[in-house]
Design a protein around this nucleic acid. Sequence first.
RNA 1: GUGACUGUAGUUCAGUUGGUUAGAACGCCAGGUUGUGGCCCUGGAGGUCGAGGGUUCGAGUCCCUCCAGUCACCCCA
Length: 420
Amino acid sequence: MGFRTIRGTRDILPDESYEWEFVENQIRAWFRRFNYREIQTPAFEETTLFARGIGQLTDIVSKEMYTFEDRGGTSLTLKPEMTASVIRAFIQHHLGSSAPLTKLFYISPMFRQERPQAGRLRQFHQFGAEALGSAHPEIDAEVILLATSIYASFGLEKTVLKLTSVGCEKCRPGYKKILQEALRSVVDRLTADSQRRVDENPMRVLDSKEPQDRAATANVPLVKDHLCPECSDHFRELQSLLTKTGVAFEIDGRLVRGLDYYTKTAFELVSGDLGSQDALAGGGRYDLLAQELGGSPAPGIGFAAGIERLLVVLEKRSLFRGEAPHATVFVATLNGEAREDAFRLLQELRQSGISAEMDFHRRSLKAQMREAGRQRADAVVLLGGDEWKTGLVALRDMRNGEQRQIPKEELADSLLRMIG
RNA sequence: GUGACUGUAGUUCAGUUGGUUAGAACGCCAGGUUGUGGCCCUGGAGGUCGAGGGUUCGAGUCCCUCCAGUCACCCCA
């Protein structure tokens, strides 16, 4: 059968790699405008970093990680998400001690061993940002604006921003008890999965997609209505900031993110064009995570976004505006005697900044022209024949078919005029 | 991890109730008079019909197992 990409992984072939380049460039430009600086971390970390950071009970840690032992017997894991790694680096390199606010972004592959599906791969790519050091809602608003600005700049104005507050260590325990009580009164009407969660992770019951669960929990209390004064103020101020900057959002009290570290703000950007995996980006505040990972306390907020999913939506809406790269000048020869000169000219063109190509099969002129056309070259330079002996080359504009003879020395100027 | 559907040239697909050398379109290659692309015409290359096993005189067509893909659940980017 031969070798294949393993399940859930993909090759990014030339026909689409330029789309990735275009998308990444635009994303980077936005991070720069918001003054976030890039961070790269290794592909793998100690397994315990993720177990502690993301939460032992989460699906990611309990069943989706690519974990292996190195030769020394240390358990390592391919990063399933970026936040834990970023915080680790933040602590390890004391990034917080040289500035009151640390704003970081990343673009990186991630690994999760899930069943592949539309918009869900085992190796996928995320871009995202983390802002560490401020507990105020202004930075929450900035992070959200950063995400929405990126999507808007791709023409995706109609994505929906879902927003909520999941409370903090002060208000959540009390709410959980209230929720559990409410859930127990309807437990027999829940699906088996949800029944199990009532004790383990009651908040997850709220975002089940099962109609049965939705119906049973229709009147159950939501966190956003049981916040402590501090969380409540924070949430209200954040909404005010978003409204002031013209960001549309929907309060979704059932929004629960799958990672344990979130406190206060949680948000998600969804698109109707994605099928079941509809989240383009998700994020939230994590004020306890730095401590949890052994650092001094540092409040933080961030988001992560899927590049593959962004590309799916851009494709679906025909919003992709990049242009496929191709060689602009094709150097052809009328006969074999000019071949070496053609090769030299090819190099000269490239050195002067023009992307140039030639035929490497010693083929007929017809075949060379066909090749130039296939590659959508803007111009063809023809070397050889009688005029070659008198110092002339033929220059053909492939876009309109016009062709003329010019002295060799004028080639560079004529070419530049032609291809702009 | 659970379920449904699907697997025939590089790609998108035909392939009649099982019956000779498995087809088309597009793409690729070469020609259509000496040295010229796109359109058109002609020809060519390219398939162990996902893999393995079974039923049958005979399997791309039927059965089983596995693998892969797609979609949904779960979860999330």
